[in-house]
Design a protein around this nucleic acid. Sequence first.
DNA 1: AAGTGGTCTAGACCACGTC
DNA 2: ACGTGGTCTAGACCACTTT
Lengths: 249, 249
Amino acid sequence: MIETRLDAVKLDGAGPVYDQIRRAIRDLVVSGEWPPGTGVPPEHALMEQLGASRMTVHRALVQLAREGLIVRRRRSGTIVASPPASHAMLDILSIPEEVEQLGQVYAYDVLSRSDGRPAPEVVERFGLKRSDKVAHLVVLHRADGMPHVLEERVIHAATVPGLAEEDFAETPPGDWLLKHSLWSQAEHAISAIGAGAEEADLLSIAIGEPCLLVERRTWNQSKPVTAVRLLYPGSRHRFVGRFGPYGQV
Amino acid sequence: MIETRLDAVKLDGAGPVYDQIRRAIRDLVVSGEWPPGTGVPPEHALMEQLGASRMTVHRALVQLAREGLIVRRRRSGTIVASPPASHAMLDILSIPEEVEQLGQVYAYDVLSRSDGRPAPEVVERFGLKRSDKVAHLVVLHRADGMPHVLEERVIHAATVPGLAEEDFAETPPGDWLLKHSLWSQAEHAISAIGAGAEEADLLSIAIGEPCLLVERRTWNQSKPVTAVRLLYPGSRHRFVGRFGPYGQV
DNA sequence: AAGTGGTCTAGACCACGTC
DNA sequence: ACGTGGTCTAGACCACTTT
């Protein structure tokens, strides 16, 4: 267990005390100052440090646990949670896991990679600036040897340290990024398009066959991290979600 | 304000008291026994009725408010909330509202309707039982006169009272259902398919053109309410969502 | 002015899991 | 056995809104 730094929790005097405590700890977590696994001080320690009652401290911690930022267990205490691997229907999900959950064997090939200033059509397709320095990758993911999804991705070198040294031989870029970068915001779009000639060839489908296109862009503190286009052959994929009128079921 | 029925709140002795209170009131709301606008008894009344402390009652009510089932205001008290009209990315949404939010003029045509035992291909397409009695509808929604989305829907007569008397001349079936039925669970699926001959004709697109297919089924207390297939021409539609690592932004 | 919810305290006992 | 979180109480004061 990573050691705790009790004095890092500082209140700002704005609003209810329980919310000050919640925001103080939340900020330590999302800023990365308390990485996953860090021990959050026990309630009695926070009580004394902050001069609040245990119920008030407890209320803040319960809310953080409900939000998924911390994990609480009796006796062993409270630690900072690992970021959730999945999120509702359209997620920052791991394609290897997605394939393995289908009971199929996962494999992938990095079809191309180029680093530096992106080509004009890449700039347009991902909404980049011409001056952005990125790695541009095309990756084909396979399930039981069959093409599963075609991934085209740019990764911003300025926000992802270690990018130049990584060759993605062991881990596909999406999964590598989960471990080597932080993100604070993401945007998804989903649409239907027909496969182009090159895409159809790589996916072993007919030109013009309907595909689901999932586009995802992520940022960390408003700095772009990565943008990806995932092309799923439509005949073989559905995204399913279940919920009730007041939230996810 | 609809009168309150304090004695309707009954605890079951299972689990924490605050959760018993929460579930008791939740059940009164989702069952329709306390319809939207009903006054929830004030905390002090629930305290006395249930023999719990105010903090415990408060905790239950705060959680219900956070879940959106009730609305609390000082002085004027707590009332049962109206069900949320929209839900996250893939919603029980109103197509008229969707079109009007795009700044376009909405119109629709009921292209066909048939009531009673559904045809075999309808049974299969919607996963019905052969004995289900349903209304089967095909509706074309237009934006600024242009085909916007093609809707094919079945509505279960057994769970939707008043269905036979409604001709959907004033309100499209999706919006009518929002006011005339309850639902407790829904399932969405999204996929890409090519337009068939008939669909292409109705949507004024080419046969085989990629479309987003949104399929939605809803139930109320495990009884089916409706199932719908919405076919959006892919070139003109994207579904977009934004969120952060710990939830919706 | 009065009724409602919002917050907070200082304690208590219990449940659970690790030591 | 012990340390942690989970629950609960009986009270207090405050903030807001309607009357």
